[in-house]
Amino acid sequence: MASQTTKGVLVITPDINHLDTLSAKSFSDEYAPLAAGASIIILDLSKVHFVDSTGLGSILTLVRDTLARGARITLCGAQPSVKVLFRMVQLGKLVSILDTLDLAQSWAAS
C-alpha cells in the first residue's frame, strides 16, 4: 500500500485492483497503523477498480476511527463502479467524496 505524508496530510493510495472479501482484512491491517497519527487523511481510491460490501466496511471503519479521534478524512479518485456503490449506500452523508486527488488536496489545505 502506497502512502505519503506532505505538509501534514497523509495520502493513502491502496495499490489493489479489488477491495473485497479477499483483500479487506489486509487493507485494514495496513492502513490502521499508518492512519493512527495523522490529523488529515486522503484515501485515494484511483487504483481500486472494484469495492464490495466487505471492502466498504473496511473504508467505513477507517472513516469512523479517524473522525472519532477528531481528525479529518476525505475520499477521492473513485472509479465508476465504486462511485455507484458509494451513491447507493449514501456514503456522501458521512464523508466528502471528491473526484480527484487535486480537489482532495485543496480540501485538505482549506
Binding site: D52, S53, T54, L56, G57, S58, L60, T61, V63, R64, L85, M88, V89, Q90, L91, K93, L94
Partner: peptide, 21 residues
C-alpha cells in the same frame, strides 16, 4: 434494508445492494 451509514454500520450492505440493483 439500508444499513445506517451515519451510525458507521460496517456490515449488512450486501443484500441491500443486490435488492436495490
Amino acid at each position: 434494508t439500508l444499513p445506517n451509514v451515519k451510525l458507521f454500520q460496517t456490515g449488512g450492505y450486501g443484500l441491500y445492494i443486490i435488492g436495490e440493483i
